[in-house]
């Protein structure tokens, strides 16, 4: 015999005040990392370095190299609207960036990044082959 629990719905309000530059940047077609005068670079960006200093915003641009990828066929809750999607991690100098791609990218391919909304209306990073 099975009994059903009372329903518990959770949707969180996430404060992104300290990284707002990044979130606004996506809507402007820009992808930001942060850099610190101590030499560290951060992607995903963070407003403060582990050394304690305040970091500075810098754009990620140019060509990257695909390090790994996958195509998700078993779709998780929250992505019901999506067909199978390709996740890619590419290196851009001192940082690695995660994104989606509509192209059949392989490890070692050279890519550039751009930003666009997905079908659920979320702005994100995408890659295209050079």
């Amino acid at each position: 015999m099975i009994v059903e629990s009372r329903e518990l719905r959770m949707k969180h309000r996430i404060p992104v005040v300290k990284t707002e530059r990044f979130w606004k940047g996506l809507e402007e077609g820009k992808v930001f990392k942060t850099v610190c005068k101590c030499g560290k670079s951060y992607y995903p960006p963070r407003a403060e370095c582990v050394c304690g200093a305040t970091t500075e915003w810098a754009e990620v641009s140019g060509e990257g190299i695909v390090e790994c990828f996958t195509v998700v066929h078993s779709i998780p809750a929250g992505y019901e609207w999506s067909k199978p999607y390709r996740i890619v991690i590419a290196s851009f100098g001192d940082v690695r960036v995660m994104g989606w791609s509509n192209e059949e990218l392989k490890v070692g391919d050279r890519v550039t990044l751009y930003t666009a909304k997905d079908e659920s209306g979320v702005w994100k990073v995408w890659f295209k082959k050079v």
Partner: peptide, 16 residues
């Protein structure tokens, strides 16, 4: 952003 499921994380290691 990217719907990284747990198998997806290991799958990325597999392709690499």
């Amino acid at each position: 952003f990217y719907g990284t499921t747990f198998p997806a994380y290991y799958a990325m290691h597999a392709t690499a």
